[in-house]
Design a binder for these strands. Structure first.
Ligand SMILES: [Mn+2]
Ligand SMILES: [Mn+2]
Ligand SMILES: [Mn+2]
Ligand SMILES: [Mn+2]
Lengths: 219, 219
DNA sequence: TTTAATTGTTAGGTGAGTCTAACAATGTAG
DNA sequence: CTACATTGTTAGACTCACCTAACAATTAAA
């Protein structure tokens, strides 16, 4: 079994690949807050174990084995988050740090039971997809709210890089997954957008915020 | 915060002290399946951190700080076991190994929530007391069933050294915590005992079993 | 296209936690 | 009281994961 540390590297590799395509030593170094030589060394070790394809000065690429292993850690992480919210009453802004630790527990039955108790969910509390038990990830079709034009009617399905500060910001504005937005105006100067939220009241958000809200066109 | 490893040493020290009084390097070595030199080294390290009083060739003794730290790990372990049984539907014979890992999660809120959800229990699924948040352990008053004489009417309140095999043995004989036993006969030859179980049917158990059943005299 | 910034690599070391082999102290039995 | 068995200690080494300092390669800017 992969160590705690290796699992975290795999998860980071997996997440970065889905965010920025090419993953370099420095990206991982930043993401994990670990020095570049450490990452370099680990890259060689992961290659040795067949999780990674590594060539000097070239971007890091997970192998099929690496992708599957990573997806299974992500699965444990997201199932845990779901369980913490649905069964234990935590807020969506409180669960990530706990899941970051619980994801390393080696006890398949534990996660299977969570899965069952929360009704075999396909997305976590932040709208991110939960890989299945074979490590397959279902891509959810969505776009950034910032890419929507005036007049679009959309609903919030997920977040890109959900951070605690984003989550509490959304909480304080009464925004949650599933809510609908009707784009009323886009400010050409700074890209801030004004939307009719839940068919009730107008709210204006900066481009920074709108870039991180993933939405789906309403039927 | 104490590492995963240190927490396991503390817990072992604590458990052994309550079982055999004097704890030597070899006891720990056996209990943790780690070589004696390793234990010796760790003993020095724990002393350095004030968890242990260590003098060459003398028995190991937890300090007040060590006892408290150990009790808090035991607390996390037993709350987890309780949660796994009560909220997640696991059997009492399935929870120890999972709890052995979950107990190392650093997230007080996680365990506080478990505590709340299972109604602030004072004993775990095997009848062992759950230390409070300050690390105080409540001694439960009980005796070994093997020490009871013919005619005693008792109820099962706990187990000494509950192992998976003991738990499944008890399961297969329909025995659970709280059940009552009426001692009918004690075989002088091998110490096996015949009891009326739950006022229903007679069962005979070996001394080995009866030594591990902790009971309380019925009112 | 030469220069500068970024990115990646090597070399050399540290600390935690483990091991084995060898030896010393302690306790028990004859 | 000596002999043997048990228990504890030291020395030396290993792996994993990390670090800093120095240097090399690549990429971007001037
Ligand atoms: Mn998360
Ligand atoms: Mn993690
Ligand atoms: Mn247990
Ligand atoms: Mn443990």
């Amino acid at each position: 079994m992969a160590s705690h540390t290796v699992e975290n590297y795999l998860k980071a590799l997996f997440a970065l690949a889905n965010e920025v395509g090419e993953v370099g030593i420095s990206d991982l170094s930043d993401h994990l807050a670990v020095s570049k030589p450490s990452v370099n060394g680990m890259a060689k070790a992961l290659q040795q174990d067949g999780f990674l394809k590594y060539e000097k000065y070239k971007p890091l690429k997970l192998t099929a084995k690496g992708k599957k292993a990573a997806a299974l850690v992500v699965r444990k992480h997201r199932l845990t988050e779901m369980f913490l919210v649905e069964q234990m009453g935590f807020g969506w802004d409180e669960v990530h740090d706990i899941a970051e630790q619980v994801e390393h527990v080696k006890a398949p039955a534990f996660f299977d039971r969570m899965d069952e108790l929360v009704g075999f969910p396909t997305v976590d509390p932040h709208g991110s997809p939960i890989p299945d038990a074979q490590g397959n990830v279902l891509e959810i079709d969505c776009m950034k709210l910032s890419e929507c034009s005036v007049g679009s009617k959309v609903s919030l399905v997920g977040l890109s890089q959900s951070s605690k500060s984003l989550l509490t910001f959304l909480d304080s504005h009464g925004i949650a997954l599933g809510h609908t937005f009707h784009v009323r105006a886009v400010e050409p100067f700074d890209g801030s957008m004004t939307m009719l939220h839940k068919g009730a009241q107008d709210q204006t958000f900066s481009l920074k915020v709108c870039e991180r809200l993933l939405v789906k066109r309403e039927a």
